[in-house]
Simulated scan of single mutants.
Amino acid sequence: MTFSASLRQAFAPSGKLRASINLGNPILARRHASSGEPFGVSIDLARALGDRLGVEVQLVVFDTANQSVEAVRGEQADIGFFAIDPLRGEGIAFTPPYVLIEGSYMVPEASAIQANEEVDRPGVRVTVGKGSAYDLFLSRTLQAAEIVRAPSSPAVVEVFVEQKLEVAAGVKQQLQADLARFPGHRMLPGRFMVIQQAMGLPQSRGAEAAQALAAFVQEMKASGFVAEALARHGIQGASVAPL
């Protein structure tokens, strides 16, 4: 697919494609331990889109999903990478999902909780990253359990352990990595939700730009680009969303 001059203007009115990157989800973006530079699937997609548009990509990096969403909604960034959620829809046009990510629970080893269905009970406190897709989803679905919000998704297990809470909720891969740092805990089998991860841009950029971004995402899935990026970055716990 090619982009017209009017589409280039819609996507990159400043002359650069400003991509909002959320480091709170390690499946999509992380920092290199040595250089500190961000890398990951979302960054690969941003640079591929910049190549198509023929413009330089400027990464606008945030620690939380909520900050990343607000940057695009407020047009401090031109595109972003978000979990599709109705509460985030205002002001942002989402593409179809490009990746599906599993959300899982962690509990102390000695916990009586053995299954996902046993979490939503009185006296159970569930830790989530503030403003994350898990926070939005569980805020709608949990009826009896209490939600405790950590400052960010990567801080969930630290808050969970520090405050001696009953359950931690988040990206399956992040929780599995945290098991090595915090022994004495276990993952509950299966998953409590699947997140549809998509690209998005301000709705003010127009329907044509939104359709072009959606077509770009579909092409990146169909061509194998997304699958190759997941494999190259060693990502587990995520799969390419179907066309």
Rank of each mutant, 00 (worst) to 15 (best):
V69C: 06
S132E: 08
A48D: 10
L175C: 02
Q67F: 03
L165N: 12
T95F: 02
E208I: 00
G50I: 02
S223H: 02
A144R: 12
S139N: 13
E37P: 00
P97Y: 07
L23M: 03
S20H: 11
F192T: 02
R47D: 09
I92R: 03
A145V: 02
T141F: 08
G24W: 05
I147F: 04
R232A: 15
G184R: 11
G184P: 04
G129M: 08
I92T: 02
A227D: 09
I43L: 13
Y105E: 03
D63N: 13
Q76C: 05
P13Y: 07
S104V: 05
A209P: 05
A212I: 10
Q176D: 14
L138P: 00
I92W: 03
A214S: 15
N66A: 05
P96I: 10
A155Q: 11
V107W: 01
F11N: 01
L53K: 06
Q197P: 08
L179K: 09
L243S: 15
R73L: 09
F62K: 08
F192L: 01
R30M: 13
E75H: 00
A5E: 13
A222T: 12
F11H: 07
A83P: 07
M220T: 05
A12H: 04
P151C: 10
L201R: 09
I101S: 04
G91S: 14
I101R: 09
M187E: 04
A71L: 07
E118Y: 05
L136K: 09
E166A: 14
S139I: 06
F11G: 03
V124D: 02
F160G: 06
P108T: 00
P108L: 03
L136T: 06
A71M: 01
N116L: 03
T127E: 09
P122I: 07
Q173K: 15
D44C: 01
R191C: 07
A212R: 04
S104E: 08
Y105C: 04
